[in-house]
Design a protein around this nucleic acid. Structure first.
Lengths: 304, 304
DNA sequence: CGAATAGTGTCTCTTAGACACTATTCC
DNA sequence: GGAATAGTGTCTAAGAGACACTATTCG
């Protein structure tokens, strides 16, 4: 901290300055955290001999009050004046999932003026990845209901326009959230502009059915980040149970990346991240497969 | 937006609800933006035949008031209630550099409770990259002085401790900011913990000489991001003038990454990102070199 | 010519992608 | 045997890294 004896232009020491500091001079925005809590679950198996398919799930909360009453929003809430952003995020996470110790990462801070019709709200979004076996949902107080939705986010239109000094790349993503009861959807437009060496990316919600606030944008951004990071980090293992087969791991990569991967190549790529055990799956209706665990000593080359 | 006719538990429509909404219920933090404005400049050439060396520069502002009076802080300021985060960042950028249209990217939001001794402040940091030729510094109102500092951030200690379920990787970075008049420095500790498949990264300022608030941490984070992104995106070109030689471009990569690169390999790597012109450097004291410009149609494979 | 920088060719090793093949279990 | 999944070997093409070489300008 600064030297206490220095005086400012008004002749005040730091101590005097801080005592007189009026924090109420400016009107302040509210600050919230929004949580993207992802997990991967096994769906019903189609035949007793087939493997169950996996699905990427996102936790949403039904709004019980205005605004967007009856629509679905990301879990989250206001940041208390005496807790850090991260503490607020962990608190929300605990309230929703009843789990303490899970992977969490700050994504982005959304600060547009009209985001929330109640008042000016700036929101920092966090992404959390949970293994579904460890999971146990607990409903929140100020919300009607918390439910898992199967998420998909597909690029369905891409348009590139070449300009004098660059180009405009416009992409439309269709975001779908569904479970037994509800089907939500949204279209998010992502526009990347390159003009005179300057790149800008803008996101806009074109339409939103049943998804509150600007949360469709936040979800699309989160899925994009998840897709990027799964390629060069080990975050996927946060979605896995303690022991898993390589096919299960591959399925998780496939639903997140929304592509099919070749088995042999996949296994080579992740070979350093896993440790073989001596256990095997049972009652599979076909050849049992070896179980693996995460290798915590895998060294990530790129990330900090 | 939600259906206006729906009524909440208190029997209010959305219109009625919003009219009665009391935004003042909770104490709110202040929200600021902090700008990391980087540029690359040519230093004095040592001999008339040698090429000038390049230096990575960061703009800092001398604090004219408490707290941290006399120390140096990142440019930035409070977010007004009627402007978006990004607008606030662009406004600060314009105030400091007098330039409108430059590269800017949101980095991270810092929300620890004790960050600012005046009051609770949550700050979103942005990184901007400017070509030094286009630059023209304009001093800020509430600051004594704005000055460019040569930045370096070196890893000088790395310690890995293996635990039962993972490891702890502790890294110490030495951050140095210097110009003709001032030498600032800080040591930032970055601890990566992997335990039971969960990865956590924490940053802590071990010591800070002349750098205000937690800004040493923010700078270290920004440089890390810059180093990562220069490897797989085209952001480096924001630091280049319209026309440049490949050696200049390589020098920019080298000072940011803090390593020497092999010329032939570097040229192969960036060949798709540049367009050859018919112009050459003059009066170089040796063989002139071809000038290139950025190729705006270079397709980035990874990023959105 | 020599100092300094510009610019190119090529070898090696690693990795990503595609494909084909073998192995094992249960019914 | 057949259905289903487990698991491996190998070819090819692209890329990263290291190194050596040639080219051009100015003084």
């Amino acid at each position: 901290m600064a030297d206490n004896k220095l005086r400012n232009k008004q002749g005040l020491t730091e101590e005097e300055f801080l005592k007189n500091y009026d924090a109420g001079k400016y009107e302040r925005p509210s600050v919230t955290v929004d949580m993207l809590i992802f997990t991967v679950t096994n769906e019903e198996r189609k035949s007793y001999r087939k493997l169950p398919e996996k699905a990427l799930k996102l936790l949403m909360i039904k709004r019980g009050d205005h605004p967007y009453i009856g629509q679905w929003a990301l879990p989250g809430g206001f940041v208390n004046i005496n807790e850090s952003l991260e503490e607020a995020a962990r608190r929300e996470l605990k309230e929703e999932t009843n789990i303490d110790n899970i992977y969490m990462e700050q994504l982005y801070t959304w600060g547009d003026v009209g985001r929330d019709p109640r008042t000016r709200v700036i929101s920092t979004s966090y992404m959390s990845l949970v293994d579904s076996e460890t999971l146990n949902i607990k409903a929140n107080d100020d919300a009607d209901d918390a439910k898992w939705f199967t998420v998909s986010c597909k690029l369905y239109q891409e348009q590139k326009t070449v300009t004098q000094g660059g180009y405009i790349l416009q992409r439309l993503f269709e975001l779908k959230l569904s479970n037994e009861e509800d089907n939500l959807s949204a279209i998010v437009k992502v526009v990347k502009t390159v003009e005179n060496r300057i790149t800008t990316v803008e996101r806009e919600i074109v339409e939103s059915h049943g998804i509150a606030f600007d949360h469709a944008k936040i979800i699309q951004y989160g899925i994009e980040r998840l897709r990027n990071k799964i390629e060069y980090t080990d975050i996927a293992f946060n979605l896995m149970p303690e022991l898993f087969t390589l096919t299960e791991l591959q399925q998780v990569y496939e639903i997140i990346l929304d592509t099919e991967l070749l088995k042999a190549n996949f296994r080579r790529k992740i070979s350093g991240m896993v440790i073989e055990t001596n256990e095997y799956t049972k009652d599979s209706g076909h050849r049992p497969s070896k179980l693996f665990r995460f290798n915590p000593n895998w060294q990530n080359l790129i990330e900090a």
